[in-house]
Design a protein around this nucleic acid. Sequence first.
DNA 1: CCTCTCGATGAATCCATCT
DNA 2: AAGATGGATTCATCGAGAG
Lengths: 265, 265
Amino acid sequence: MQDRMKPYWQEDGITLYQGDALAVLRTLPDASADAVIADPPYSSGGVFRGDRAGRTSSTKYVTTGATLAGPAFTGDNRDQRSYSYWCALWLGECLRIAKPGALLVVWTDWRQLPSVTDAVQAGGWVWRGIVPWTKPQHRSRPVKGGFWNQAEFAVWGSNGPLRKEPDYAPCLPGHVHAASPDPADRVHITEKPREVFDLCVQAAPPGGLLLDPFAGGGGLLVAARRGGRRAIGIELAPEYCQAAVQHLARERRRGDQGVLEVTDG
Amino acid sequence: MQDRMKPYWQEDGITLYQGDALAVLRTLPDASADAVIADPPYSSGGVFRGDRAGRTSSTKYVTTGATLAGPAFTGDNRDQRSYSYWCALWLGECLRIAKPGALLVVWTDWRQLPSVTDAVQAGGWVWRGIVPWTKPQHRSRPVKGGFWNQAEFAVWGSNGPLRKEPDYAPCLPGHVHAASPDPADRVHITEKPREVFDLCVQAAPPGGLLLDPFAGGGGLLVAARRGGRRAIGIELAPEYCQAAVQHLARERRRGDQGVLEVTDG
DNA sequence: CCTCTCGATGAATCCATCT
DNA sequence: AAGATGGATTCATCGAGAG
């Protein structure tokens, strides 16, 4: 662990660092996080390698004429071996930061799933399962002559044996079925629905600390505050750091309204 | 391809061979199957290596002393390397038997998923996706301090480019949510629900030929006939061959009743 | 029709002990 | 010390049936 960095933003137990995930992770203290929730760039593309090179996320993920909600995100063109290697690096660093028994959740698509399970174990975590997130067909991609592509996957594991303490050792649902947010409401291109974030947040006990090395639009940070957890987010792109902070501010206003509505009812 | 074997049973375009999958596959003709649907023994169980070896399916998967449907099945004790190797062998043989553009569906659990995706590609198939089957929580197992284990996975691919013919190139659902059949109604310990078989059957066009190298209790053969497809099943255990034939006979009677009921209504 | 209790269920897992 | 063996046990869920 190196010297502490200056946060990009901090409020209500939510901290956001701007910078490269590996670089920032190295500055975080040992055995401090109750759970690590990671949604790294998938680095996926065509079935054959040539399809994968030289395109940025704006052309890859937006097939219709819809306008791109945010800046193209980087780090999404690694080939498979270097992707596994890179994942093993930051996963190993996360292991150091995680408390014993802490949970790990890493999101991926079908194509990178085997690389991610390898990397999780290479990073020293105990791999314990896969949680599918399934989307309704109208929000996913048809494959002519095959099966719809309507699932993404969370590879999950733990730092050593699972927590058994009676105070917080829940049995969490092993499947989420929810639609992606409407493109108009999306902060990040690949933003996951609220249901997914709300599940991930429960990987840490109330008041516990979540670590999100690829914070993107800040969806997990928002969910962490909503669920009464602290969180540390890391995001490389300044545009997304700004978007995440705005997201947190917007949801705080909406949350206040929610509280008022509850009081009224 | 070697000499034809004598079928164990044959009727209505459904053929069942009794024998080792690899041995029987070698006797089947080239480019004859429209789809391959495989539900091999998972050789799974145990987060750590020691828990994976030397147990039979009856002691491994059945905790309560209750209802053991049928005998324990064999071939469920391979270590990870030999499991991948063995899968690549029969998958390669299936590729030879498959028509160009034929679909492949291989069922597995989370633990063997990466091995199976490797083996599918090693066998020469183009890997194209993962279809999760999710179960309701009350028919799956809680994991204290973690996520419920409530999904199994179909790794799917094709023999070369996907079929594009307008006559049969459907977009099939990429997710099934269904409960396991009631233990009393099960022919095989690990039998999948009807919804799963009905989806798999659609991988071949109506009248087309399905190949099931691990027929077990015959669930896919029954579904194939129900869906108007032909099928070739292979099963090693004579007990399960017999059970599959009985299953087909029972469902034929039930099917006749079903037709009558529809006529009545 | 609603609420409650009760029981069955699970393609395993944990851990002490022995080799 | 590492691996193999064997025995004991997990608990939230939801349907059925009763009240």
